[in-house]
Design a protein around this nucleic acid. Sequence first.
DNA 1: GTATCCCGCCATACG
DNA 2: CGTATGGCGGGATAC
Length: 719
Amino acid sequence: MEVNCLTLKDLINPRQPRLDFATEDGENAQKENIFVDPSRMAPKTPIKNEPIDLSKQKIFTPERNPITPVKLVDRHQAEPWTPTANLKMLISAASPDIRDREKKKGLFRPIENKDNAFTDSLQLDVGDTAMDVFQKRRPSRKQKSLGLLCQKFLARYPSYPLSTEKTTISLDEVAVSLGVERRRIYDIVNVLESLHLVSRVAKNQYGWHGRHSLPKTLRTLQRLGEKQKYEEQMAHLQQRELDLVDYKFGDRKKDGYPDPQLLDFSELDYPSSSANSRKDKSLRIMSQKFVMLFLVSKTKIVTLDVAAKILIEESQDTPDHSKFKTKVRRLYDIANVLTSLALIEKVHVTEERGRKPAFKWIGPVDFSSSDEELVDVSASVLPEFKRETRDQIQVCAIEKLARHGSFNRVQASERIQRKVDSEPSSPSREERGSGGFSLEFGSLAAIYQQKIEDNSQEKGFESNSVMPPSSSLDPAAPFPIRSDSEYCVNPLAHQAFSMPQTDLQTLSIHSGLNGQGGVSLAAPDVESLKPAPLASQPLLYVPSTSLFMLCGSLPEGPSPGSEKDSRSSDVSAAAEQSSTPSVQKRLSEERKPQGEEEPATKRQSRDYEDGPLSLVMPKKPSDSTDIASPKTLNNRGSVPLEDIHLNGQLCAAKECSGKTTANGFVSSEWGNPSRSTEVEKPSKDNEGTKQPSLLQYLYVQSPTVLGSSDPQEYPTHSL
DNA sequence: GTATCCCGCCATACG
DNA sequence: CGTATGGCGGGATAC
């Protein structure tokens, strides 16, 4: 299909046609969105700084100004790709109007994603013939995923742009360049806007801010989330689920009132926009709330259904099932974007009720803390409105609290605990949340970041310590882990980053899941690692899902539980109890040689050996050095830099791993789901003690997931 | 089957 | 009226 559809570009440049883009590989594996990165992500446009590239667009849009874009022109009729498409075509034939529409669309084609290098080459071998093209090129759905698209989008701009330059984003331009309809760009931009990575400047234009203020934004959101007592809400919902109740919360928990204004908070102050009256509706708000849920969650894991329920609640209550479905749909959209930003990753949680899709926060968590500081910061950053917002929010929150309080929070909490439980962190950093230190870090980090940017990125924050450094490095991703990606400014880096992230994620996951703890630990390593950089990269990204979480206590304790150890320390005391140490050790020992890519099989085997732990282990490879990463490198070709971080991350990850795991264990998988079930049950956990958290989640990696989800293939490096 | 989620119709907002 | 935005959900795809 691609073939068929040419894009404007193609038109312009006829020769390229298929190959470039095509590749797909579709099947590969990955789940959907993954990123690969191609070298080309930013194809034409100049990435970094320049936002706009007229060249390509020329035809289409004028771009720069808000002028209205022309809709695109058509290309030939449509692309037959989907069945629907065909139908449409037919229809269009019948009706002119429709036809027009079609024309408009016309453009998309997959862009090249990927790097040509590998894939293409591979594919090329096969042949470029038309046939191949057809087959290969087929635009698989994945290629068109929002996550991938978002990645491409992000690759066009520096994560940490220099303050001096302001980048403007022309929606049309981007749409054309990425080969998608504008509608899709809105989806991305809206989410980015909710995190203040961009802001709307004018009609068709958005200003790119990058992740500089992300920490602040997250802090603010975290606070808001706390105020809203999202944690409790989540707990309630979970309970309900247990009960079976689905949507509908009878209780109405808290909210009687609307949420306060997250939105508002969203608007930065960007000069130009004065008018904003965006009625911001759902996507933006939903995105912020969704993020808040992660930030307030101890486990940092949020299931889609819980998130959907909470969101619905707030807004309205219609327990309508359809509404729920729609919400979930939107959440997937948001999640894809957040995944591309390396803030979350997909996991599965198995609860009593069964396995459910969920996402785990892998972004920075550090800040917690006290309000004031935060506030200040935010204030500085965000101007006025923030404060206002905050105040408002606070007020609301208070009210809510009061109400809630009355409620049964207690119960809820208990239940919740069960579910969530887990927790996080382990020993090392338990406090993170509590302590203010995190805040400090955050701020420091921010500062550093900026400086760094200015300077050059590099830097060595690393040095020291733990968290801070890491955070500093990666603002975006506070976690040590992901930081790398961010760190890099270059576009390429971004691209690359995806991989790293993955790695990180994976690692962390394996380890224990919790990012938190891990992070801190990691940081140090990272530093050291950094230098090594590239090597580490090899890992690749594993997108999502590698793990599953199971709730409940572990069954036998033995194995799994113990192994796993707790990562969670904070919460779960349980972890402490037993296992932790051992686990950690292991982790440490191990390293991951390769990235995660390993096939599930391997893991499994390992698992068997050790049990869940083993899973974790693999990742560890500390060394990151390994290397292999060539692939990643590829991208980098142009961009050198930052990759390094990745390595660091890895390290961190491993460390984390140690901590992590607390309650759950990882299992290998699917294969044995049964097991998991067993587990679930409550054994009560060890802990029962203090923590409420009764339920534990198990994280399991799923082989499938691995394989499947990640299609990645990236073979990795293997090592 | 279920989980994801693309696609794009169509309602709004705005001019 | 037109365009700009983006809610929304049918239905396709991935698993």
